[in-house]
Design a protein around this nucleic acid. Structure first.
Lengths: 168, 168
DNA sequence: TTCAATATTTTGCGCCGTCAACCATTGTTA
DNA sequence: TAACAATGGTTGACGGCGCAAAATATTGAA
């Protein structure tokens, strides 16, 4: 007698699995990141800045990429700025906007944090799977990502053109 | 000239993908759940209760299963109790403990919510993948889940034995 | 030019969940 | 039995983030 309750639907457990993995990893990562004085959101913002040609991105682009609210980005950048890892620079071409610019110490900090972080990622995630499993996983995830968050690549080209210098 | 910056490590983008998918799905699901007056955490607690033999679970077991804090579970159950979806019942064998028991209206509510929710899950997640992709994905996720959250199956056997009745 | 409509960011307020402290109960050891 | 650590749950203080409104800058139209 198979149970056919809607509450046991396979699709439900499939998302459940994703959620559990996400939470589990987040918890595993949090401790080490805290040693570097960073939260996951802060790390992500630093990473996105660091990957950009001139290490800078508009606040609204950060919001689009991270799926934080613009308000959320404001506050995260506030903290990072207070910590000296990011600086704000006004945008010449559109004086409504502000660049968030990764400082030198910000780059150092994120580099150090990432080195440790990758160890954890490998231990708790990528290292648990065979290469085939991993590519299968990421391919599938990419399909889902592209439909649930198509806007995730904002402002990179634009930022490459601008050249705002900070520090020094 | 390949870029070899640590910040671009493949493993990093692999987790990034997972995080993006999780956030994207969460956002997609939130609206519909809100129509049923539920948050994702609330739905999860109701689901876990509903899947249990007598629709009841100890507070601490809920905490272990959901990776909320016990304090967090207290507050979520507070809200659900206020809404009449869950009731608290004292535990006979250990008077420190309390059962969270799904009420009849709670069961109705979660059933209705899940019906809609599954549609969304299918549209934004499981329905986007071929059966092979999906099983590959869940198999891989299960491997990760079992190592990052081995404690995720708490209190079910125990709850089956207890038979606390609430309402009527 | 002037004014309305729009875009970018910040701020006030509130919800949600964590942390740490706390109370009640249980089990253990003597 | 008393004394005490360990366990289960709740509460107060606090921080992070979203929502909506405000502040500022830009664009378009008359």
């Amino acid at each position: 007698m198979a149970t056919t309750r809607i509450i046991d639907d396979d699709r439900l457990t499939a998302v459940g699995l994703l959620v559990e993995v996400h939470r589990g990893l987040t918890n595993k990562f949090a401790a080490r990141l805290a040693q570097h004085g960073l939260s996951e959101n802060e790390l992500e913002i630093l990473l996105r800045l660091g990957r950009t040609p001139n290490c800078q991105l508009r606040m609204s682009d950060l919001a689009a990429q991270t799926s934080l609210t613009t308000s959320g980005v404001t506050r995260v950048v506030d903290r990072l700025e207070r910590a000296g890892l990011v600086a704000r620079a006004s945008c010449d071409t559109d004086r409504r906007g502000t660049w968030a610019v990764l400082t030198d110490t910000g780059l150092e900090r994120v580099t150090a944090a990432v080195a440790d972080h990758i160890e954890d990622v490998d231990r708790w995630y990528t290292g648990l799977l065979t290469p085939e499993q991993l590519t299968g996983l990421t391919d599938a995830l990419r399909i889902v990502r592209d439909t649930v968050r198509p806007e995730a690549v904002a402002g990179i080209a634009e930022a490459a053109r601008a050249r705002t210098h900070v520090g020094v």
